[in-house]
Design a protein around this nucleic acid. Structure first.
Lengths: 346, 346
DNA sequence: AGTAGCGTTGTAAACGTTTACGGGATTGCG
DNA sequence: CGCAATCCCGTAAACGTTTACAACGCTACT
């Protein structure tokens, strides 16, 4: 069985390849009758257009890339986080016959390296990048290269691109209000150790919360650790050995909570009693921890869908279906109370 | 600045495009002198070959796909299982200028759908598929289509393809030996609820272990649940309400341990004392759980590297660098003792 | 000197598709 | 009947690359 190209179809039907192509691409100038015949033959032969030929001709690949960090420090995106977001994006793209591919990029290599390769080789038409840094060279690079893209996460490097980001300030604010309402005054903040932008945003919200509650900001209470179990363990160790020990801590990542629980257990202390903990993103993990972790809910499905649609809105060829324009939106998160935060122990 | 194709380079250097192409592709029949000039001009102009053109001509895309399941039942891992394996594979492929793309496939759609699309559109040259089923239609499909591929996980559908798989039988065997040595006789087995092949393999090892220890097999002790926290919770519930309650349980997934811990805690029971637990794959999580989970270690980096190299070994164009032939290997795992398994409580 | 061989280069044809263009047939209308 | 408009279709040129083939100049050998 010879490879079925558009030419085989044309030969078989006794018409020209041009007509076949037009029929398959829903062009208006083709007889409905012949279109029907073409489509029938296509499914009959199991024909699918060769993407390389198509890409070469029209300079577009129908593929969109999603760059995710595969760092070993677990900085934010673990498997089920990005897999779920991914599924939602894919669902949006499938409507337009767009393929979505994930491009893992390890944290210890030049973040631009992959980008340059993808962009210059014309492998993807557009990109989604995550884990944006405070100053992110990828943004200016993509803007210069005129590649449509959206970022999951704000950045201080400006650009005309759309972005979506979680409401870190809001999260920090409500967490602070909640803790203060329970009687806490010394509240530590566990930030990521890299320069990912969400760390700065959380810090902003934390400070705002302090200010609103008229509590003085103490730099010693701002700690940094890897966003992993190990990081949480070390962070807890640091907290527990502080002279004027804080009574509560707000963590940037739910994995840190696990390490913190462990360290407290080693010291014979109980989370929620001896030290209150509020995590960040809710995951299946959170409510199965002992005690259940107070944290913030987020629909990954909705987030992914918004990501996909917002990106398409900025690509001329698809913009008509998504009249929202270029989206720059902060995504709200809702508090899910657990048992990990209580009144401070006197 | 006009797009720099191979033609621009040729014009600028005053030579033909054929020579330029040969120079860039390290063909032997080109003057070392001109090659140097071509390479210089290429980096000068920032030239990178257009992948579509190249693919169209030589019928190969220099892209390899990795299909991973993005089920919503949380059957993935909570840490960077895939991300870490990707990193290692990518590292191998980078040596040959191959791109790795990840193609998540949700569990509730036809698993062949993506495959057909990728294969017929000639988007990838080869594939890595994971989570192989007992009977896996993808295997025969790919074999029929003559697409090189490797599976992470054995299957009972035969095929000439290479595979890598974890040593589930071995794991079950040593777990059983260990538990029996501690005095356990009634040992439950927590299997995944779908028909993924590892469930059958674990069961085989479990039965072999029983037989070697001369313990009768009791079908009531084989339980099935989702590979998630929720699944572990339900499984624990089932175990605790059994008439003749088992004293130990072997779990297929570390996330299940979390749910199980939780359920035991709710019942005022302590893992490792009231019920011994052995998990499967070690992850950062395992040793931060309370008590630390006894489980089996695995180097994801090595596994990924072996996956990549074994796949390349079966692709004619790259086989020369990997003389290992088609690999079918069971990957050993090493027990990491924790505090979750002790002697049975009388 | 003729010729075989080698090293290097140019030429042009592919790969599979889309699409601008033109042309033939048919229709509609004055 | 003549002309224009409409509808449909075929032709052929692109897109950027690789590569078989021919051709060239040169050396070396018979």
């Amino acid at each position: 069985m010879a490879k079925t190209g558009i030419r085989q179809l044309a030969d078989h039907l006794g018409i020209s390849i041009g007509t076949v192509s037009r029929a398959l691409n829903d062009r208006p100038d083709v007889n409905p009758e012949t279109r029907k015949r073409v489509l029938a033959a296509a499914t009959d032969f199991g024909y699918v257009p060769n993407q390389s030929g198509r890409s070469l001709r029209q300079g577009t690949t129908n593929t969109i890339g999603f760059i995710v960090e595969s760092g070993t420090d677990g900085s934010g995106s673990n498997d089920n986080f990005f897999l779920e977001v991914f599924g939602a994006i894919q669902h949006v793209f499938a409507r337009h016959n767009l393929d979505l591919v994930v491009l893992p990029c390890s944290t210890d290599e030049d973040p631009l390296h992959h980008l340059q390769r993808m962009v210059s080789r014309r492998i993807v038409d557009a990109l989604i990048i995550s884990a944006t840094r405070r100053k992110d060279p990828r943004i200016s690079f993509l803007a210069d290269a005129h590649i449509p893209f959206i970022t999951l996460g704000r950045s201080s490097t400006p650009g005309p691109h759309p972005w979506l980001d979680l409401d870190f300030e809001g999260v920090a604010n409500t967490a602070m209000d909640r803790l203060v309402a329970k009687g806490h005054r010394r509240i530590a903040l566990g930030l990521p150790s890299n320069d990912i932008n969400l760390g700065f945003l959380l810090l902003d919200g934390y400070k705002a919360g302090l200010e609103r509650q008229e509590i003085a900001f103490d730099p010693a209470l701002v700690l940094r650790a890897a966003s992993s179990e190990q990081g949480g363990y070390q962070l807890a160790h640091e907290v527990l050995s502080m002279g004027n020990r804080p009574t509560a801590v707000l963590l940037v990542h739910e994995l840190m909570a696990i390490g913190l629980y462990r360290r407290m257990n080693d010291a014979g202390l109980e989370p929620g009693k001896d030290l209150s903990v509020i995590g960040f993103r809710e995951s299946p993990l959170s409510r199965f921890l002992i005690p259940a972790l107070t944290c913030f809910k987020l629909s990954l499905r909705d987030l992914g869908q918004a990501l996909g649609e917002s990106l398409l809105a900025t690509i001329p060829a698809y913009a008509e279906h998504y009249p929202q324009g270029t989206v720059r939106r902060v995504w709200p998160m809702e508090l899910v109370p657990g048992d990990s935060d209580g009144p401070p122990r006197m």
